[in-house]
Nucleic acid binder design. Structure first.
Lengths: 160, 160
DNA sequence: TATTGTTATACTCTATAACTATA
DNA sequence: TATAGTTATAGAGTATAACAATA
C-alpha cells in the first residue's frame, strides 16, 4: 500500500523509535538540519561571527547586487523589521553598503563591500567543503539528488 | 568537474538568484522547511494548539512509552531545561503522564494519556496527508527517496 | 491608497548556571 | 563523582503595531 520508505526506525541519536515521524518531511528536515547547523556553526558561525541569517543575506546580496530589503525579506521568509536589524549589523561591520534608489526613492539598494565579498566567498567555500566531508555517507550523485528534491519542495512555497 | 545540480537559480519566491546557496544543503533545508512549517501550522499548530516541539515530543513518547526527559532532549537536540518546560505544558494539558522509575528513582518515565494518543494520532494523519497534498510536484517514489536521503543526512549527527 | 523601510515593543524559544535528589 | 531533572535567569531571534517617506 504505502511505498514510503522507513529504513531505520531509530532516531539518529540511536535511543528512540520514530515510526510515524519517519514519514514526515518536516520532522526529517529538522533532524537533518541538526547536522548542517553544527557544520555551519563550526565552519562559519564561530570563525566569522556570522549568524545564519547574516550569511544568507550576504550570499543573496552578492548574487543580487542592488536588491532591496523587501525582496530579501520575501526570500528568507522573515519580517521586514527583522531584515532591517540584520542589515544594520552588516552595515556596522562594513560588509554591506546601502544606497537610495534613484528611480524609487523609497528603496534602499544593497550591495556587498569588498570585505563582504571576501567574507561570503570564503564562508561559502568552507561550507560546501565541510558539508561534503560531514556527509560522507552520501555520494556526489546522491547529494545532487537531495539538493534537487529539496529545491522542488521549496518551490511549493507559492503553490497554495 | 562539479556534478552538483543547480536546476533553478532563482529563490522559490522567484525574485532573487541563489547561485552559490543552491549547492548548500543547510540553505536548501531551511528553504524547504518554510513549506513544511506552513503546512504544520495550518494542519496541527493552530487547530491543536501544539508547537512543533510539543507535537514531536508526543510522537516520540507515543513510540517510546516510558522514555525519559534525557533521551528526548538528546533526540530533539534541545537542552534539558527546555524539555522540562515543554513536558510541563503537556502534563498540564493531560496529554502526557509521568511516573518515577522504580529501578532508578531519578528517572521520570513518560507516557501518553488516552487524550495524548488521540491527539498525536489525528495530528500525524493530518500532517502526512497535508504534506502529500502540498508537495504535488513530487511522486510517491521521490518523496520516499527524499525521506531516505534526509534520514541519511541526519544519521551523521554522531559521526564527528 | 499602497509600498518601502524604520522604530518601539513584546513575545517565544533557547541556553547556561546553580541547585536537589539520586546513583 | 556522575547523572536525571528542576528552577531561575538572561539572551537571541521573532513578529506585530505604528509611523514616515514616497509612489
Amino acid at each position: 500500500m504505502d511505498s514510503v520508505a522507513r529504513l531505520d526506525l531509530r532516531t539518529p541519536a540511536g535511543a528512540l523509535l520514530e515510526s510515524a515521524l519517519g514519514s514526515l518531511v518536516g520532522y526529517q528536515l529538522a533532524q537533518a538540519a541538526i547536522v548542517t547547523t553544527r557544520v555551519y556553526e563550526e565552519q562559519v558561525g564561530q570563525p566569522f561571527e556570522l549568524r545564519p541569517v547574516e550569511y544568507t543575506l550576504l550570499a543573496l546580496i552578492g548574487d543580487n547586487p542592488g536588491s532591496s530589503s523587501a525582496s530579501l525579506a520575501q526570500a528568507l521568509a522573515v519580517s521586514a523589521p527583522n531584515i532591517t536589524a540584520w542589515i544594520d549589523r552588516l552595515l556596522a561591520r562594513a560588509l554591506v553598503r546601502r544606497r537610495q534608489s534613484t528611480t524609487d526613492r523609497r528603496r534602499q539598494e544593497l550591495r556587498l563591500t569588498a570585505a563582504g565579498t571576501t567574507v561570503v566567498t570564503q564562508a561559502t567555500e568552507r561550507l560546501i567543503e565541510a558539508e561534503r566531508q560531514a556527509l560522507t555517507g552520501l555520494s556526489r550523485a546522491e547529494l545532487a539528488m537531495l539538493l534537487e528534491l529539496l529545491q522542488r519542495v521549496a518551490r511549493h512555497r507559492d503553490t497554495r
